[in-house]
């Protein structure tokens, strides 16, 4: 099991091979757990619920994972985030739907497998993203946090910030571009013009 790739493990899961799921658990639970505990603000009960739902999704998924569809770990984190936000929104009685599994896969399409993890450790990535975030303006940082970690929609954020939706949309665009540029700069990628 240990020598198998993520892709091979997914194949085995589709064939209802339980040890394959356990192996994926061992590989990724720390990442999923750390992510969920942040998004639930340290609620271990909710975190457990999220981790259970993520692995249930993995076990019941009837779609074969294809490496060309993107990095498995990113796909896993996308699922985790969607399940988390679904849970948060349900509890806060927010309206709005969370993207479906099919969309998650479509989202990953066109993304070539580029194993960032092989270039830098997760910890280094974390430091870099934090550094990149620090260079955003205060409203941009707030926007990213509300959107990514709190699960608010753009129109909800526009309401919270008392700004037109258009302003929030362009603020998002600027924030993502700036993050990307800062990030690329750090890891020595090509600096894109603003």
């Amino acid at each position: 099991m240990k020598s198998k790739s993520d892709e091979e493990l997914i194949e085995l899961i589709v064939q209802n091979h339980r040890p394959a799921l356990e192996e994926l658990y061992d590989r990724y639970v720390k990442l999923i757990y750390s992510f969920s505990i942040k998004i639930t603000k340290g609620d271990t009960e909710k975190t457990k619920e999220i981790v259970q739902q993520v692995f249930l999704r993995l076990w019941t998924t009837k779609r074969t994972y294809n490496a060309s569809q993107g990095q498995f770990v990113n796909w896993l984190l996308t699922i985790t985030r969607n399940i988390s936000i679904d849970l948060i929104r349900k509890e806060q009685k927010y309206k709005g739907t969370v993207q479906l599994e099919l969309e998650e896969w479509q989202q990953m399409q066109g993304l070539q497998s580029e194993d960032v993890e092989q270039q830098v450790t997760r910890n280094l990535l974390k430091q870099q993203i934090q550094e990149a975030k620090r260079q955003l303006s205060e409203p941009q940082q707030r926007l990213i946090n509300l959107l990514y970690w709190e699960g608010y929609s753009l129109s909800e954020i526009a309401e919270l910030e008392q700004k037109p939706l258009g302003t929030i949309k362009s603020r998002l665009h600027q924030a993502l571009k700036k993050l990307r540029n800062n990030f690329n700069g750090k890891i020595g990628g090509v600096r894109h013009g603003e």
């Binding site: 639970v29 992510f35 692995f55 997760r122 993502l176």
Partner: peptide, 30 residues
């Protein structure tokens, strides 16, 4: 590049120790 950046945001987490008992709880649940 922007999609990757969006996904990189997920790495902005503190590594947290996973409780030992979680694995059986998750597997039992699944």
């Amino acid at each position: 590049s922007i999609q990757e950046t969006w996904q990189m945001l997920s790495y902005d987490v503190e590594e947290t120790e996973v409780p030992e008992s979680l694995k059986s709880q998750v597997m039992d649940f699944v």
